[in-house]
Design a protein around this nucleic acid. Structure first.
Lengths: 204, 204
DNA sequence: CCATTTTTTTGGTGATCGACAAACAAATGG
DNA sequence: CCATTTGTTTGTCGATCACCAAAAAAATGG
């Protein structure tokens, strides 16, 4: 085993983690290959040999990001029995994530590349697809609530899921602007205040 | 009057409007001076002579943006007697603004430069300051509601203003991802559903 | 030892970035 | 007509962009 040629002098997983740090701090377009090469401790030619283009590397970085930073909110959504509590815990997990001391205060899916040069359209669409996935996950959880009799069948799942997706994404802007964890908990509490009116059986 | 030297061959206000279009489409870092020069119909040297650096131009563009695109939500906030209706109309005006056919579907204050290279920190802070102004305007309107007896004095104005600012900013992501006007109206309605619980006098 | 395979190192590609200097053009004041 | 002032045109600056070719290095199989 172990292949034939010259062995790698770096750990690709470790290098990917360092690339994540840089992309997280500066966004997609704000990060240059020189930045990446320095942070990853390898020459840019090695980046191309191991990860492909800058865009390829970014997609692999986002896969790592989704698997790590994205896990807690996703788990809160699926692992909580009560639908209402599932949404609430998902929001709290999001706040936790974007106010941590270890990393920049925003969700990469939301702010790593919302605008930019035309040539990077594919990257923006890639992230937009991820965000649509966020909303789809929320909607799926609400559907499950209806199926389990936890939520009135008359609930407007489109509106409700989009509403909470909007809050999740707005939180990143707030955190980026310096809002504290406590302040964002207040936002979450406010966002949950509408749960009763929004899920009540109409006309009953 | 009319100065001494050679007269300008272009209208600065018109050129500023064209610069706004480009910055709006591609964000701050995604827009190059070549893009601007072409859209404004003048050489880049003329841009420097008339507007200063790229950053200077962007600040003037944002002043124009705030005065035009930013006016309807701002007016809805101040010109509506009922506090609740003022917030609601502000949200509707925002949805109107970011789903218009004439311009990209997002608020520049929110998405023109949320992340990017370190050298553009000043621009990001400039926009962050504008966003904090958004929330301050909402808060000021709520304070007025309290002063006018329209809102219970016990209302948590910090949390409430931050909550609606979060929704306003989240709407830009939703619109950018293709949400229709009707879908965003549903988000606004959902966001307003919490108004009653959030403004009720506690323990009464 | 040698051929093969794979990675690293080195160095540089053309393109584009924001910004500006110098030369030229068009107006006014005298 | 001429000096002055201001704007435009032209050309280009050094830096940086994403990307890659060529050569050298380090492993394996025979």
């Amino acid at each position: 085993m172990a292949g034939r040629g010259r062995p790698r002098t770096f750990d690709p997983d470790d290098a990917l983690g360092r690339a994540l740090d840089v992309f997280w701090e500066r966004g997609y377009e704000g990060t240059s290959l020189a930045d990446l090469a320095q942070a990853m401790g390898i020459a840019s030619a090695s980046i191309y040999a191991c990860f492909g283009s800058k865009e390829d590397l970014f997609r692999q970085v986002m896969a790592l990001y989704t698997a790590t930073a994205g896990a807690p909110p996703r788990r809160a959504l699926t692992d909580t029995p009560s639908t209402r509590t599932a949404i609430e815990r998902m929001l709290h997990a999001t706040v936790d994530q974007i106010t941590g001391a270890e990393s920049p205060h925003y969700c990469m899916l939301v702010l790593a590349a919302p605008t930019g040069a035309i040539e990077n359209d594919a990257v923006r669409e890639f992230l937009a697809e991820g965000r649509r996935g966020q909303r789809a996950a929320i909607r799926a959880r609400l559907e499950r609530g209806v199926a389990e009799g936890d939520l009135a069948a008359s609930t407007d799942l489109d509106a409700l899921s989009r509403y909470y997706a909007t809050v999740v994404q707005g939180l990143s802007i707030q955190a980026r602007d310096g809002a504290t964890r406590d302040e964002l908990e207040g936002v979450v509490a406010s966002a949950m205040a509408g749960w009763g009116p929004l899920t009540a059986r109409p006309g009953v």
